[in-house]
């Protein structure tokens, strides 16, 4: 009885606490919008030559300041630190030593190789699967159900995903994969997470599981947007079936495919949480982003961690450059 009563009191206080917290949030949001509106009103009263620069300042200023503090300055600082020794403050200049370490140390070579594998497999497979589902689901009944179920992993945190996939890769009696292969007659399946190099691909499966939904949603939107007369013209010219798909539809959504591939690739390059949650980077599954974290926050070797971060940036630079060239063309035609 007393237990019930006390738990009732706890619940009640939790409730009033929560209510006041959420009330504060509404206040904060209201104040934020009020400030923006007041600034808009004040800046809108400006006339003449001041008008344009003031508008640019008000619209673009906040974003630029936040980006400078949050991303640009840290990025420059990272580059600077990558040429220095282990310590955060007062480390000596060491030139390219951290980079030579990254490319010659056998452990790091494994990390680079793993990252390369991830970069090829995860984006390509998730984009391909996303495209397949986007095209195929269109004529199915209950397509919203299918789309929602495929997209669902996007809504799950990496911590949640770690718990979910434990029940697939774990040993008997928990692991579904173990149970299935045992039922199929494999008497003593290995411990999946420990089996190198297979474990790398098992981890990639989790990433693909999460990213396919994203690719599917974006690509299915693009396919629906292809103008109809192009399809008509191709049909008159005698293109049908898969030929129509591969030589007309795919080229038409090419730039979307590239955007999806780039986005997934950048996400893959920064992949960190999955590795951390499932293997912690052990058993030969480490990748750049996780190793960067380990070097910086576990080994406290800021110089090496920074060098790995710069390698990550350089690795996607060509892809970014290609995207920017495409964007430039598009902005020019506007």
């Amino acid at each position: 009885m007393s237990v019930l009563a006390s738990s009732g009191i706890v619940t009640a206080s939790t409730f009033s606490d929560s209510a006041s917290k959420l009330g504060n949030v509404i206040e904060v949001v209201a104040v934020f919008f009020a400030v923006i509106l007041i600034i808009f009103f004040a800046a809108g009263r400006a006339t003449g030559r001041l008008q344009r620069p003031l508008a640019i300042l008000v619209f673009l200023g906040p974003a630029i300041v936040l980006l400078l503090i949050g991303l640009v300055i840290p990025a420059i600082r990272t580059f600077y630190l990558s040429l220095h020794g282990a310590d955060l403050v007062g480390a000596k200049y060491v030139g390219l030593k951290n980079y030579t370490w990254a490319f010659t140390n056998p452990t790091e070579q494994q990390v680079l190789l793993n990252t390369l594998l991830w970069l090829i497999v995860a984006p390509v497979v998730s984009t391909a699967l996303g495209l397949l589902i986007a095209v195929g689901v269109d004529r199915m009944k209950r397509q919203n159900l299918v789309k929602s179920l495929i997209f669902m992993p996007m809504a799950i945190s990496f911590v949640g995903a770690g718990i979910i996939w434990k029940y697939v890769y774990d040993k008997a009696p928990d692991g579904l994969l173990t149970a299935i292969v045992t039922a199929l007659g494999w008497k003593h399946p290995p411990l999946w997470i420990l089996s190198h190099p297979l474990n790398n691909f098992l981890l990639m499966v989790i990433m693909i599981w999460i990213q396919t939904g994203f690719a599917m949603v974006v690509l299915s939107a693009a396919i629906k947007a292809v103008p109809d007369d192009i399809i008509e013209a191709a049909r008159v010219d005698g293109a049908h079936g898969s030929r129509l798909f591969f030589s007309v539809q795919i080229p038409m959504i090419r730039s979307t495919l590239i955007v999806v591939l780039t986005t997934v690739m950048i996400a893959t390059l920064k992949i960190f949480d999955i590795i951390k949650a499932v293997t912690g980077g052990n058993f030969g599954t480490n990748v750049l982003a996780n190793d960067m974290w380990n070097q910086t926050f576990v080994q406290f070797n800021v110089g090496r961690g920074s060098a790995l971060a710069v390698i990550i940036f350089v690795a996607v630079a060509p892809l970014l450059a290609y995207n920017i060239v495409q964007l430039r063309k598009e902005r020019a035609t506007r």
């Binding site: 991303l71 300055i73 840290p74 960067m292 910086t296 971060a309 990550i312 996607v316 970014l320 920017i324």
Partner: peptide
């Protein structure tokens, strides 16, 4: 240029910003 620059910032690994921030 500002537009392309902001686009390119996507690639900065968030982990590296934590200590400076």
């Amino acid at each position: 240029s500002i537009f392309f620059f902001i686009f390119a910032l996507q690639v900065v690994p968030l982990q590296m910003s934590l200590i400076p921030l």
